[in-house]
Design a protein around this nucleic acid. Structure first.
Lengths: 256, 256
DNA sequence: TAATATTGTATCGTTGTGATACAATAAATC
DNA sequence: GATTTATTGTATCACAACGATACAATATTA
């Protein structure tokens, strides 16, 4: 059983973790015009969940979230922010949880700490999809990217609700900060950027107006044209220019 | 010592509470053109703190926050929302905490659970100042309202940071929801409403434009004029009309 | 009765935005 | 190599939103 290492941590390290609290990460990526989230499939089941973990006793919440994210994606520095804390006492069904563990060959007593009530802090990460290679850890967990609008049927616990709230928060972020550029690769066309906005907002935008608005913000550096995209005029490539953004008083809208 | 009852709870009921997690409430009110927050003064000190508490094991976070708020202000139904979770392992200095308790005649061992690391969930409440009478509980705690821009010098733990974050969140709320009307009395003049906005945003607004904007939202009911306000034209009184707000597609901007 | 302070509203110019149009052009097709 | 095609970059028009200013209305005071 490939999960053993991780689960051993969970099972044995109770004394190292803060009790009764966990972190769940909604890892957003953008690929082929789809907004994706990274989900983990529990072994021997069809149940998916968010990657999560616990907080060491000497660790801040942000540090824990970064550690968990690094563990799952191999990305160390990326945009990561808490968006909500989920504290319903019935948010996790301990029977469901125990059944999942059993399916993975781990038979824990029903009074094991893992099945106690846990409050969970929701973090979302905005990662550059192109920089994430299938991590060894990912394979072990049978994790994968899913279109946020086409999620698996069975999602564990209250994780579907967490995903919904994360998407809501991401939409709010669009209005206030420029953090969504963390979802784009280093260079991109205006059409690709528009596609990201459309996917997050789940509605079509007028191309001409989107371009006008984006250029007027003064945060993009225009590079060479992108050749070979098809039988049509070649689009420019752009790069997000954080210095320009700062000069244009958008400093407070990006990366805190 | 008047605190005894509450502190007894804290000291003895460890087993009833979720371990390692607390709630702190930033209770906003609006009075005499000032944005106020309710702070508690620890006995025999000059140290103020936010009213807070712990979560019972069968209670949701929102329920706990409501209970704590009710306890402090006597208000049962009001606008209450979590805004951030504070999880720095050094956010509370246990020595400072123990010293404060000692000053209140409660000498706890340094390994008492109260001095363990606690993560705290920040909630803000928007209350109608005119409906809050000095609650018996308040007197006991020597609590009082403070202008958010003129806080006491000594504020315990990381509570000043929590207050700052709460004010930031309140400003965001202004853009998205109509919840700030919870801070106003039942009826008010346009000038009073403008004063609230100016106080939250900490900047002056143009009277004519503010009035035009507010009226155009179609969320206010115009009542009789308010007489006796001085040697000038009498202003109209307004009432926030949640039905109008709903009809004008603002339903999603108010009370969830 | 006149003066005063404040309120309610109108107006002007500027900016931002939705909608549409059109020229430019890289690759595919003939 | 000329033509076609799909897409891009930009211009334009109408309208809404907004900052700034002006002014008439009016409840109280003098």
């Amino acid at each position: 059983m490939e999960h053993t290492t991780e689960y051993k941590d969970l099972v044995n390290q109770k004394q190292d973790f803060l009790p009764g609290i966990s972190i769940d990460c909604v890892i957003f990526g953008f690929h082929e015009n789809q907004l994706k989230v990274l989900l983990i499939k529990f072994g021997n089941t069809q149940i998916y969940s968010l990657p999560g973990g616990f907080i060491y006793k000497e660790e801040s919440l942000d540090e824990a979230a970064n550690r968990i994210l690094d563990h799952r994606t191999g990305i160390e520095d990326t945009y990561l922010e808490q968006f909500y804390i989920f504290g319903d006492p019935k948010r996790v069904n301990p029977e469901e949880h125990r059944w999942i563990m059993q399916k993975n060959g781990i038979d824990l007593p029903s009074d094991h700490f893992l099945f106690n009530r846990h409050i969970t802090v929701g973090y979302y990460a905005l990662v550059d999809f192109t920089k994430i290679q299938p991590h060894s850890y990912l394979n072990h967990e049978e994790s994968g990217w899913f279109d946020i609008y086409d999620l698996p049927e069975t999602i564990a616990f209250d994780h579907r609700e967490i995903l919904t709230k994360a998407l809501d928060s991401l939409r709010l972020l669009l209005d206030h900060k420029l953090a969504v550029f963390n979802l784009m690769p280093e260079t991109f066309t205006m059409g690709e950027l528009q596609s990201l906005y459309e996917t997050i907002l789940n509605k079509k935008l007028l191309r001409a107006n989107f371009q006008r608005k984006m250029l007027s913000l003064g945060i993009l550096e225009r590079l060479d044209k992108k050749w070979g995209g098809g039988a049509h005029k070649a689009p420019y490539l752009y790069r997000f220019d954080s210095q320009k953004a700062e000069a244009n008083k958008f400093s407070n809208q990006f990366e805190e």
